[in-house]
Amino acid sequence: MKFPPFTYHRPRSIEEALDLLAEHGDDAKVLAGGQSLLPVMALRLGRPEHIVDIGSIVELATIDVDDDRLRVGAMVRHAEAEGSPRVAERAPLLRAALPHVGHRAIRSRGTVVGSIAHADAAAELPAVCLATNAEIELRSATQSRTINAADFFDGHFTTVAHSDELVTSVRFGTPGTHHAVIEQSRRHGDYAMVGVACQLTIADAIVTSAALAFFGVSSTAVRVAEAEAALIGTDAGPEAIASMRAAVTDVLEPDGDIHATAAYRRHVAGVVAARSIHAALHNEEAAA
């Protein structure tokens, strides 16, 4: 399928991109890796009149550490983050999620920030943002603001970002000691039917903090505080896992669709949550 016509812009600086977004607003779309925007256009689910290609803005292609947090710029591709020792060290949950995003040929073009800005309810990286309390850094021609991940995602494919704003980078939160991303999908590399990003901090064999962020179960990724509470203060043994799992199936109210019924999704949410604890505990590499 061919893309509908549009006017193409290739800004060389963030300022130039922001001016274009200010000028064209709702009629413009940012093009990063194109691995979601271009299929959307091919399928005529979207027809932007202006495309602002940020691929030539060199200053957006950086990974750095700011205030002890890993900051990933808007043109850092999935594959680059996957291979970055800094990401592995500072954001091990992000590192664990990346191999689940599509396939290698998708990850060599797609960007970390694009996955977050796109806000697919079944995508892995928004859940990583929630689990690590990431901060989303936005800029428009007139202002800059930073939004906590918990306030950023508004619904399936929607965020609180305005049409004249560029997400310049995302700062991921402090890692725990144990991490895992577990998902169930129809075919390898497909979007998950249900998945979970799990980050635990364990000190002296006791869980001191827990984050469980589920994707594919709601219109955005969601954390389940009741399930996290069931783990905190425990040894994350079989009893704690059982009550955590009960909390997950109690709280989540997924919808059914062509891929899976609601009841199946709810059941599998409990299963992946339990598996994620086992995986996190047994993944020595993931220990910080």
Partner: peptide, 21 residues
Amino acid sequence: GACTVLIDGEPARACLMLAVQ
């Protein structure tokens, strides 16, 4: 994946790239 080519050494979908990119 039928359209996979190598762009600067990395595999990519030639159908999910504007030629101008």
